[in-house]
Design a protein around this nucleic acid. Structure first.
Lengths: 348, 348
DNA sequence: GCATCGTGGTAAAACGATTTACGAAATACG
DNA sequence: CGTATTTCGTAAATCGTTTTACCACGATGC
């Protein structure tokens, strides 16, 4: 039957991974049966089942994910799009997502948008081309989705953290208004009247929200006229520069509320370089938590997002969306947490 | 139980992404021609080429990555296995790898081994099942590869950072011996004679190397008899506890060399909680660099691995290995860098 | 004019799994 | 014992792409 077939098909078993045919052949059954055994799709007589399992084990067979997901139409992979991994907040999100994925038998495909909308669009496209079952996006900018090159076919998608009131997607984000509010209120309660808020030049929705919270606390205390917005940039260095200028003024603030990771670090550097007594002469409420913060003195009072909750909830919402694509859109808000420590003192 | 499930085969064209057939149909050519145009495989007459490009654009067609990689036999995906992403050193590695991947048109699949060999083996298996073109592993333990459940079919693999003298794989790692040496030598040159080295209980190859460097510097200075090994654990807290005990002793060291990120933080916490004057009464050489370090006072003198180089070199080696699987095994060593700042002072 | 060549197009065969449909055997039922 | 029903196994279709093999056609060489 075989004869002279010039096809060295399965001639080199040493290098290539075994296929379902190899297993079937070795077990003396059909590929369909192997699939049924390994996938548990249908009942298989116990003797042939044993044969299959044995053969698969000997050959070290692992089903080819490309082939199976092509056939089944899902990849059990979730695309994760974050601005960058260098920022501890995002790497924490990714860590938690990775754990959720492992629990649920998924894998995550991580790409970085570098906080640039064009790059983000490109990276999202390439993740879609891989036919991921869903996407978790911590958007680069408010402008997300407003761009003309918006992908035509999008798998279930959840917007996280910087999610804004987008019409189309589920969103899970921190209570940024409250973040601004509780941080500022804490300083007011300590007797401060000259409170500067340090934020970014880009009017990201989530940052505007934090500033709105600051304003709310101020006006609630009858200090509406004493707003002091300090506009920093996207780098630690840029924040340091502007806050240093602010602190050089004769009417410098007695307290600073940093609303981002960058501005927190920038503020600390500015205080150090000016040699101001900290926290005696200047109070600071920082943003985000980090393991490193335990090594910084004074121990920083900070408002922190709960990254584990953000990650967990967004994962849950995404899974629900995948299960029921037509379900009602969800918009989840995660509370923030104020940790009172030593960097904010009563106003002198 | 499940309800009635009809067959909504191609009934909903609005939701499913377009296939190459859709494009071919719309352009009035065959799928083969579409593939040739989009892939640039063969010459196509310019009028039909234009038709195809037009049709693809209108439909928003993106080739199905599952199908194409099944056919071509490669996925243009690299698996990345790291202990965790919470550790800034690893998240830096991943960041750089992600950038390299983006440049080369790859995607990376990130999984965490949680520093556990069993988990690592499982995660590696699931990455292999996805038929990645290559794997970058920052191993969980020296024991890597020694485990009996070692994967039978492994794509090109490069071991990074904690790579040890493994017979089978390319390795790219820091010069850990030198890391221990230069850190210790710096302290010796400052006049210290009682130098404790803080390391982990697990005798990881790379940690042993760092301690060996410490020993080398000591014996070179005729201090061979004055070794002071302090064994911490894998957490900041565990390190803090042991170093605190060490610092309570009447003959406490005048300097500490922390050889890991955990022990660096643990040492600082211990110093703070004991209220020792730092760096006057105790000197410290830290390990690894972090953006946060700029906020810690005194500014930490530290030995740091060059994560960008580690990532870049390992990526290069992996690409070379993929291109020529039979090439000679490479073993690259990346120098470490000592940044002299303020936490190590001359011995009193 | 005839053989040769190159070009452009397509049909069909992979890739490796899952699933459907069908037949054969085994079991249950009256 | 004959028929109805379930169980088990497999051939073949399918997923969406790339690539091979072949055909048709016009141009070229002699």
């Amino acid at each position: 039957m075989k004869g002279r077939v010039p096809k060295p098909r399965k001639a080199a078993p040493s290098k290539t991974a075994p296929t379902i045919h190899d297993v079937a052949h070795r077990a003396g059954v059909s590929p369909a049966t192997v699939s049924n055994v390994l996938g548990g799709t249908r009942g298989v007589r116990s003797d042939s089942r044993a044969l299959v399992i044995q053969a698969a084990a000997v050959l070290g067979y692992k089903s080819n994910h490309m082939a199976s997901s092509l056939r089944r139409g899902n990849t059990r992979t979730i695309g994760v799009v974050v601005p960058n991994l260098a920022n501890e907040f995002f790497s924490a999100l990714v860590t938690h997502w990775e754990a959720e994925a492992a629990k649920a038998g998924y894998e995550i495909l991580v790409v970085a948008s570098e906080d640039d909308v064009a790059t983000e669009a490109r990276r999202i496209q390439s993740v879609i081309a891989r036919r991921v079952d869903g996407i978790l996006i911590a958007p680069a900018l408010d402008a997300f989705g407003a761009s003309s090159g918006f992908p035509k076919y999008l798998p279930p998608t959840v917007l996280v953290d910087r999610a804004f009131g987008h019409q189309k997607f589920d969103t899970v984000s921190s209570d940024n208004l409250d973040a601004g509010y509780v941080g500022t209120r804490h300083l007011i309660q300590l007797g401060h009247r000259d409170i500067a808020v340090l934020t970014s030049a880009d009017s990201h929705y989530h940052l505007r929200n934090r500033v709105d919270g600051y304003r709310k606390a101020l006006s609630e205390a009858g200090l509406a006229g004493r707003e002091r917005l300090v506009i920093g940039g996207r780098s630690v260095e840029a924040c340091r520069a502007v806050i240093e200028r602010e602190l050089r003024r004769p009417d410098r603030p007695t307290a600073i509320f940093a609303t981002t990771f960058f501005s927190t670090l920038g503020t600390i550097k500015a205080i150090h370089s000016l040699g101001i007594a900290f926290p005696c002469d200047i109070s600071l409420v920082a943003f985000e938590h980090s393991e490193w913060m335990t090594a910084v003195r004074p121990y920083l009072t900070a408002v922190a997002q709960q990254s584990e909750q953000l990650a967990g909830q967004s994962w849950r919402v995404l899974m629900e969306r995948i299960a029921r694509p037509a379900a009602k859109r969800q918009r989840i808000t995660i509370p923030v947490h104020l940790s009172i420590r030593e960097s904010a003192r009563p106003s002198p």
